[in-house]
């Protein structure tokens, strides 16, 4: 007998399982071999599957050399079909034209250009590369305005991606 409700919930639990499995695989690979400049506290990882905090070291030879930042990932139930919410947290927020002083990052792969083939690893690499290519430490021009008016969740911001250089 066909019962649509049970089938739907079964499908849902299957996708949940698949998504959980993918996150686990990502975390295992990340702990084993993190991208250069990324430090992961193996203890804190896995305490909760929907939150991940890792440290990013400013790359050598760049203006952020010697600095360390905390990057927080939050994974929604639709991950990896929906992008993770990624922000800098803590007191050290990189001074960068695409990073607001509240930690929000203007990076297209975190919203519009997200693809499920991207991963925690590739997001880290993108952010490190974004920092590394910066020549001058400055905040985005609309920083004070944005920080006052934005939502807590950067994914609710309607970002304009216009600067291809940094």
């Amino acid at each position: 007998m066909y019962s649509p409700r049970s089938e739907a919930s079964l499908a849902q639990s299957c996708t949940l399982q698949r998504q959980e499995k993918r996150l686990q695989k990502e975390l295992v690979a990340l702990i084993k071999e993190p991208p250069p400049g990324v430090v992961i506290d193996g203890e804190s990882v896995g305490q909760s599957l929907d939150l991940l905090v890792l440290s990013i070291n400013g790359a050598q030879g760049t203006i952020y050399e010697g600095e360390q930042f905390q990057l927080q990932f939050r994974f929604g139930p639709k991950y990896p079909f929906d992008s993770p919410e990624v922000v800098f947290i803590g007191t050290e927020i990189p001074v960068h034209p695409h990073v607001y002083s509240n930690g929000h990052i203007c990076l297209s792969i975190l919203t519009d250009d997200w693809s499920p083939a991207l991963s925690i690893f590739s997001v880290c690499v993108s952010i490190i590369s974004m920092l590394s290519s910066c020549k001058e430490k400055k905040r985005p021009p609309d920083d004070s305005m944005y920080v006052k008016t934005c939502s807590k969740n950067p994914k609710k911001t309607k970002w304009w991606y216009h600067d291809e250089e940094v």
Partner: peptide, 20 residues
């Protein structure tokens, strides 16, 4: 199933997750 779910996620802009 994975690809199908991705195609459903963005029905108006269906692109390859790897190479777009």
């Amino acid at each position: 199933p994975c690809l199908h779910q991705w195609l459903e996620t963005r029905p108006n802009r269906q692109s390859c997750p790897v190479c777009k």
